[in-house]
Amino acid sequence: MKRVLTWGVALAVLCVATTALAGGGGGGGPAPGGGGGAPEPETWALMLFSLAPGAFFARRALRS
């Protein structure tokens, strides 16, 4: 289980780092200070990210 958690955390960090590089764009808009969209992370990145807390909480729930 330790190995699973370690891999999960490593993948989650990788996902955050990868998707953070693909941020959304700005451009002209209604406010003078600037602005832009708010694209959410890709589904695969969110799913991989949820592996680590999922494994952690499922393990805790099954033990109790």
């Binding site: 808009g29 209604p30 600037g34 969209g37 708010a38 959410e40 589904t43 999922g54």
Partner: peptide, 29 residues
Amino acid sequence: VEPDYWVVVNETCSGMNLMLTLSVYTLVY
């Protein structure tokens, strides 16, 4: 729109990815 900044919630920000992920998560969990 806020006086200093604005945000548009377009198709890629709708929350669909979060919803699909959370649906799979709650099913499996």
